[in-house]
Design a protein around this nucleic acid. Structure first.
Lengths: 239, 239
DNA sequence: TTCATCGGTTGTTCTATATCAATGACAATC
DNA sequence: GATTGTCATTGATATAGAACAACCGATGAA
């Protein structure tokens, strides 16, 4: 009944129903006596490969990590984007089911499997994280199974806007006359394509289309200025 | 830090890396004193709707339940199929993120949220279940994002064959000269389509194609005889 | 026995997105 | 400041799967 390691979780929902974690410049998880080790990753450095032995779990202190799976012919699907406050590395079996690779410079908190499985507080925290990731995954499943290219990209952009587009979306704040925001993609077009189940060309074309319609302004490829958040939200297929 | 209810889990991996649960004609989860209630569902009876208050979790004793989400224009995506030994009903927020509907006559074990959050054993069990579901979801994400219609249907069929197609697949057992099996779909073509991100017509055509190639025999729509499991496995895109 | 219903199949046409190919815009290196 | 490499954009064309439509076969009621 017990060969217990893990394979994924998030404390804050990031992705579709975003709610960012402004304060956490250090671990949000309950501390564990021994294994309080930190680890750094450079952009595109691999933390672990699918199939590696899973004996540690990680919390993202800062930066962004992607989890992906490859098909034998090279097709790639990014299955989850792990952001500040999220966790990764859980597995039911004793091996990782995905590859984890940093998108940006990243700092991680490392927890040893043994520490985790003996700490009820940690268990409980992980549990909460898992539930949050599960909801994001469900949402992403709908995106991949049923949404058009335009809807996918719009949903992706909304996922980068904190506290908007989710269930409790309040709309634009009353005071401010504007409803704009600049979001950092921290992903290449290829990575976005592999996340959204599209090709790089389709992603590029949809972004150009949004540009032409005056919905967004692209600033050095990695940063997009959304001129009216509600307008993008209307394109997600959820309204 | 604590408004704790849940939203999903599975004790056995069902779907891609299958490993069926032959014995469990009763709950596999640790028993909880008070809330040991059972519940029956008729085919296509809804257990709960997306948005309903989430205060119970369920274990499937027998039968099959689907979890799905709807877009406002009626597009549906089935995000998970819950089978014998699996659990459902978890949520991080206090509402369900999916609708749960029985595919077949179903018997459930019902656990009250309060019982769950106070039982460490239950917590631990749920945790294991969540990890298993997470892996299935990752696998399904690859299917929806990157696989062709034929690969999707082949993967779906393999998911109905216990102990085959997974990481530790042993291939056909040495003794037996044959490598066939009859699987029950317990889903209509429409439901399969909504699970695989296809249309009903495409599902039907792919099944007909497999029939024409002599890979399968269809018996009264709901039951498919796979003549050579390895042959189907070769079509999943994972070899 | 007829009729209606429901789920499934098959044919035709259409279209969104993939694929293939060329060009552009930087940034890094020599 | 030329050269190279990487990533992105744009155009032309192909195609897998969607959409629309007709039909089929089993079931069940009148």
């Amino acid at each position: 009944m017990d060969n217990l390691t893990y394979s994924q979780a998030s404390s804050k929902t990031v992705g579709n129903e975003t709610s960012f974690n402004e304060e956490s410049m250090h671990s949000a998880a309950p501390s564990v006596k021994n294994g309080a080790r930190k680890q750094q990753l450079k952009p595109h450095e691999v933390l672990f490969f699918e199939g590696d032995k899973a004996d540690k779990i990680y919390e993202v202190i800062s930066g962004v990590v992607m989890l992906y799976k490859l098909l034998p012919d090279g097709r790639r699907q990014i299955v989850y984007i792990v952001r500040e406050g999220d966790m990764l590395g859980f597995s039911q079996r004793d091996i990782f089911d995905c590859t984890a690779e940093a998108l940006t410079k990243t700092e991680l908190q490392v927890y040893e499997g043994r520490d985790v499985s003996t700490s009820p507080l940690m268990q409980h925290y992980i549990n909460r994280c898992l539930l949050s990731q599960m909801e994001s995954l469900h949402e992403h499943t709908v995106l991949l199974g049923r949404k058009s290219a335009m809807e996918r990209v719009a949903t992706f952009l909304m996922g980068l806007v904190p506290n908007r587009g989710g269930v409790g979306c309040t709309g634009p704040s009353k005071e401010a006359g504007t409803d704009d925001r600049t979001v950092m993609l921290s992903m290449t077009r290829q990575e976005i394509a592999d996340y959204l189940g599209l090709t790089i060309e389709t992603v590029s074309r949809v972004i150009s289309q949004m540009k032409r319609k005056g919905l967004i302004k692209v600033e050095k490829h990695d940063s997009i200025h959304i001129l009216n958040i509600c307008n993008i939200c209307q394109l997600t297929g959820m309204h």
